[in-house]
């Protein structure tokens, strides 16, 4: 569990150039959550996630990891970083080893594990992201964009973190590549109970996968709730340069045009169901049944 208490961060504190990147952010990340973090570029979300594993030190407030302040004297930042894994944007840019397997071993090696354990973890991490053994001896630079991305994510997974934070893991990937990575993350969360924090610009993706959304704007945490509640504030989100998923707008447009439908839908499936429900009540149901039998 990670707790933030009134965390503040100022760039170049004490100089005339001082700018506030985080303003009194308080929040709690509980074990096993799947959280989406959204906000436009420069809203402070990247700064926020770098605080969670101690890469950036808060200029005010406190951060607790399992109840213990990470700024307490003697607290091991190295230990924290292996428990809170952080995958940066375009993580493939950090690959450097001669082959895929050795690169993934880099993290566990830094943790000071035995050779067997290192290799066991690397294998497991690679299989979690769907990279097969035939890739182990390839140079990371020979792979396609999506494969590189997955190897880089495996590099962090191999450290077996309790919390996994990803900064826009799907940036620049094609739709299938995007779905593959998000699907693997969802599985990690479901099957291993890993806490996942996903930073994303895609409201559609966030709506589909996470169970809690945090919204950052000008360094402040402005919303922190379930996707349904957060996207209900779509007008406020728009003022921050964000939006709700397209289906939410469709539902609102339908309701306004006199087509009675639930307006709190956030995924395509929900919208489909809601629209069918309205039509069925009107008697379209008969047609649908007939159609179903005909098939």
């Amino acid at each position: 569990m990670i707790t933030l208490r009134q965390v503040e961060y100022k760039y170049q504190e004490g100089t005339p150039m001082e700018t506030e990147a985080l303003h009194k952010v308080s929040l709690e990340i509980r074990d096993g959550e799947f959280i989406g973090l959204i906000g436009h570029t420069g809203s402070g979300k990247s700064t926020l996630i770098q605080h969670l594993n101690g890469l950036v030190r808060a200029t005010g407030g406190d951060i607790l990891y399992n109840g213990e302040s990470i700024y307490r004297e003697g607290f091991s930042m190295k230990e924290l970083r292996s428990r809170v894994g952080l995958v940066f944007q375009y993580p493939e840019h950090q690959l450097f080893e001669v082959d895929v397997f050795t690169d993934v071993c880099f993290g566990p090696k830094n943790q000071g594990l035995s050779k067997e354990e290192i290799e066991k973890r690397a294998r497991e991490a690679l299989s979690l992201v769907g990279i097969g053994e035939n890739y182990y001896k390839k140079s990371p630079f020979e792979l396609s964009g999506g494969e590189k991305r997955r190897v880089a994510i495996a590099g962090v997974l191999a450290m077996e973190p309790e919390v996994l934070i990803l900064d826009e893991p799907t940036a620049g990937l094609d739709p299938r590549g995007r779905d593959e990575i998000l699907g693997q993350l969802a599985r990690l969360h479901r099957e291993r109970g890993m806490t996942v924090i996903l930073v994303s610009h895609s409201m559609e993706d966030v709506a589909k996968y996470v169970d809690r959304i945090m919204v950052m704007n000008h360094g402040c945490l402005v919303f922190d709730d379930t996707p349904r509640v957060v996207f209900g504030h779509y007008k406020e989100l728009e003022e921050m340069g964000l939006a709700a998923p397209q289906v939410t707008y469709i539902a609102h447009a339908l309701a306004e045009a006199g087509f009675p439908v639930r307006t709190d839908v956030i995924t395509v499936e929900e919208a489909e169901e809601a629209i069918l429900c309205t039509l069925n009540m009107d008697g379209v149901g008969r047609m649908e049944k007939a159609d179903g039998e005909g098939r």
Binding site: L55, R81, G85, F88, P91, H93, F106, N110, V156
Partner: peptide, 16 residues
């Protein structure tokens, strides 16, 4: 800027 970013990314993987 890139140096700073890669440095942080490797520190996140336990580099010292």
């Amino acid at each position: 800027e890139e140096t700073d970013k890669i440095m942080k990314a490797q520190m996140a993987r336990g580099a010292d």
